[in-house]
Amino acid sequence: MYVWDFTPVLANAGLLAQGLVNTLKVTGTALACGLVLGLALALMRLSRRRLAAWPAGFVIEVFRTTPPLVQLFWFFFALPLIIGVEMTPFLAAAVTFSIQSSAFFAEVFRGGIVSIERGQWEAARAIGMTQPQAMRRIILPQAVKRMIPAFMERAIELMKTTTLVATIAYADLLFAANEIAQKTFRPLETFTVAALIYFVVITAFSLAARRLERRFAVSGETTVH
């Protein structure tokens, strides 16, 4: 019978904590960049100008239809040779996951924008708004509200995807767990603890997301006094 012993894992709790911080760092960076870039890609793809729509469509389709690990390897091993710039694991991960999530966010944005009734555009145009003004003041605020559940789901997917950085030796939570497992010869305890940490953090995020969705679902519909 195997005797479980978590003390070696606890002794390395600092490494795991640092790993978790690094995981959150990659997730946060990719989320922030991905949202901004995703909105830009969505607006380009919706544009009537082919010169804007086609490249955006290309980026979106390529990053949605290739495996993220292949993208990560390409950005880490291939891109530095092409552009002649040294890539740190963090930079490669941030770039890959920013673009990758922006491709998904772009489709979320696009779906939200096209879901807004034509009458809203017309009413905005009828009081003399320009296209960008109508988008910013009338369409996006309504669209974003509808997109929140999809955003949350994507953000959680992103956090799970960031574990791939461990394969290019970025010291995220999974990489830290792997190090500890090899050092202490306690892979069972270490990987179990790592899995539980992910489970707790991601579950907490999805619970928070669900609450936020409910809040947004009711706000704006109520009367302000």
Binding site: Q120, E122, I127, I138, Q142
Partner: peptide, 29 residues
Amino acid sequence: TAVRQRIGMVFQQFNLFPHMTALGNVMEG
């Protein structure tokens, strides 16, 4: 846009902006 500012339009389906109050709708333009 200049012409539309000088010609007002009222729609069959109202097309009010649902995320703004009545006052906000009137202030928006």
